[in-house]
Simulated assay, not measured.
Amino acid sequence: MNTNSQLIEKFYTAFQQLDAAAMNSCYSDDIVFFDPVFGLLRGEEAKSMWEMLCKNAKQFSLTYGNIVVLDEEYSTCDWMAKYIFSATGKLVINKIKANMRFADGKIIEHSDAFSVHKWSRQAFGLTGTILGWNSFFQNKIKNKAKKNLVTFMEQKKLK
Rank of each mutant, 00 (worst) to 15 (best):
A22T: 15
S25Q: 14
S25I: 08
C26G: 07
C26W: 00
S28D: 11
V32W: 01
V32Q: 14
F34P: 04
F34D: 11
V37N: 06
L41H: 02
R42A: 15
E44Y: 10
E44N: 13
E45H: 12
E45C: 03
A46D: 06
K47I: 00
K47T: 05
M49W: 03
M49T: 02
M49R: 01
W50R: 07
E51W: 01
M52I: 08
M52K: 11
L53Y: 03
C54H: 08
N56Y: 10
N56V: 06
K58Q: 15
K58D: 13
K58N: 12
Q59K: 14
Q59C: 11
S61A: 12
L62K: 05
T63H: 05
Y64S: 01
Y64D: 00
G65W: 10
G65L: 05
N66I: 05
V68D: 12
V68M: 10
V68A: 12
V68C: 06
L70R: 12
E72W: 05
E73G: 04
E73S: 11
Y74K: 12
S75W: 08
T76C: 07
D78V: 02
D78G: 06
M80E: 13
K82Y: 03
K82G: 11
Y83K: 10
Y83L: 14
S86N: 13
S86M: 11
A87L: 14
T88E: 03
G89I: 07
K90W: 00
L91Q: 13
V92P: 00
I93E: 13
I96E: 08
K97F: 09
A98W: 03
A98D: 15
N99V: 14
N99D: 10
M100G: 00
M100Y: 06
M100K: 05
R101P: 02
F102S: 03
D104C: 13
G105H: 07
K106W: 01
K106G: 02
I107K: 01
I108N: 04
E109K: 13
D112R: 09
A113R: 09
A113G: 11
S115D: 01
V116F: 05
V116R: 03
H117I: 00
H117T: 10
W119D: 01
W119Q: 08
W119P: 00
S120P: 04
R121A: 13
R121W: 07
A123N: 02
F124I: 09
L126Y: 11
T127Q: 14
I130T: 05
